[in-house]
Design a protein around this nucleic acid. Sequence first.
RNA 1: UGGGGAAUGGUGUAAUUGGCAACACAGCAGUUUCUGGUACUGUUAUUCAGGGUUCGAGUCCUUGUUCCCCAACCA
Length: 566
Amino acid sequence: MSPTNPAPAASDFIRDLVRADNEQGTFAGRVQTRFPPEPNGYLHIGHAKAICIDFGVAEEFDGVCTLRFDDTNPDTEDTEYVDAIIADVAWLGFELAVPVRYASDYFEQLYVWAEHLVERGLAYVDDQDGDMISVQRGGYGMPGVESPNRDRTADVNADLFRRMRAGEFADGTHVLRAKIDMQHENMQMRDPVLYRIRRQHHHRTGDSWVLYPTYDWAHGQSDAIEGVTHSLCTLEFDSHRALYDWCLDHLPLPGDRPRQTEFARLELTHTVTSKRRLATLVADGVVDGWDDPRLPTLRGLRRRGYPASAIREFCAFIGVSRTNSRHQIELLESFVRTELNQTSLRRMAVLRPLRLVITNWPDNADGTALVELFEVSNNPENPADGVRQVAFSKTLYIERDDFMVEAPPKYFRLTPGSEVRLRGAYFVRCTGFTLGDDGSGDVVEVQCTYDPDSRGGTAADGRKVKSTMHWVSADHALDATVALYYRLFTAEVPGEATGEAFDDLNSESRELLSGCKVEPALGATEAGQVVQFERLGYFAHDPRQPLLFHRTVGLRDEWANIQKRA
RNA sequence: UGGGGAAUGGUGUAAUUGGCAACACAGCAGUUUCUGGUACUGUUAUUCAGGGUUCGAGUCCUUGUUCCCCAACCA
């Protein structure tokens, strides 16, 4: 299903680059990419961009893309995340052409290559503590200081390194460092740490290693082992590229030398994409879990009814550049709406019910109110979705703000004396209303008469009404709970501008409405299905609760628009 | 403080590489409409600043300004 947004000509310097490589025969026309998440959290909308680029580029140039877990730090990693990430990539719509890879598969090879460096005097064991190493590294514009251990002989280093692996030293006491240049202007090149000792159970290698490679020692080599040609990552790794190349330069590598290229990560307004902060929200119980519909995790978005295809279209549209930018959530939502407008079923639901009584509605012979069934289209955009029967009777519910006692100009809905259409049913004219006896002035009931000659919603005499309203039959309606969300996580609740800064981890972005009245067909909605509540927006049926609906996106800013005109 | 990256309407992305600054989102106005939605049409608004080269500069040169990233035994 493709949205009606015209295919954009988004800039994509990476595709241009790959194309140029192919023309020049750089990798003999071969294209291989990889998506390398660390399994320490769940994928979010930011990752979706990277996935679309990594898998998309491979697909477009008849290459392959590997899903590789960068599991070099056992402290925070877990199979829970591995499984979730695999599932989320699949949900987004990308198939794995090759089995899942793990950096931990290469631990032995990486160790051997480290020995190779040690033998050539290109790496040394340092037994200073972390603070000292950090201080010696120097600062921006300030030279570093060489470690006193920097000039140990290759034999001594080889021996120490073996003993590190053998578990002779305590955690944090020894590291292996590359011997590069402590005066280098790029801080990453000031003798970076390649291995650290950490007695921590690894989710795949168990306790067989006490030694773990750092990202910098694992990443480029993993790319090389797998045959990656284009190693695409985000801008913050820019300064690591020199080290990436240095490692590859000093190793006897098979095949092509992979090349790293960086692009700007995705940022969205109203959205938190820091894995650390998301983890905090989950850990602190601010949200229900990683799939809380307020979160921009792929699971959260899925539960909230975002179609994977809309996310992919969005990523294709925004393109790839090296400019840091923060896209508006409205753009993403417009892709969601475009998609959902084609695919979602229409249903009638009343979020804030107001009773409407048709005073001239006929009774049955036994004195009970007559019930009439109407056929209503499931989706006018797609007649193939068919029709359903909806019950209509004397007492109905309409939306509370679809009636006003004193209506402003240009208010087209129900007001004393006015006539409107009840969708798919009859024209009704308002003849009166009842105020509650609590003195608040709130209307508790509206009385109308109906025009029997307007059955099905078309008047026999051809007269028109300015408004069509949704309704549910009081005797048939189900009670539901509807969760309204204001953007993704960072709230912009009407009347309570919280801004975009994410200083307050407890900011609430959800309003739960209970006592909503929905038509019976919604009770049978499949879990996870997205429906359009007429005029209100798109809502996803919660997969775990029978009559709980999450608002996916609204139809524009429906209430804001209405109130502005009212 | 050193190095690297980036600056185009309100937002984001383009511009055949020196040749009429466009596309989308948001906004506004209108047409259609069994929902004030959808669809369609119209419309507002843009090259960070100064200087230079040129018939011609978003694009080239120069000076400046602003923003982002880098000093984990994280990735």
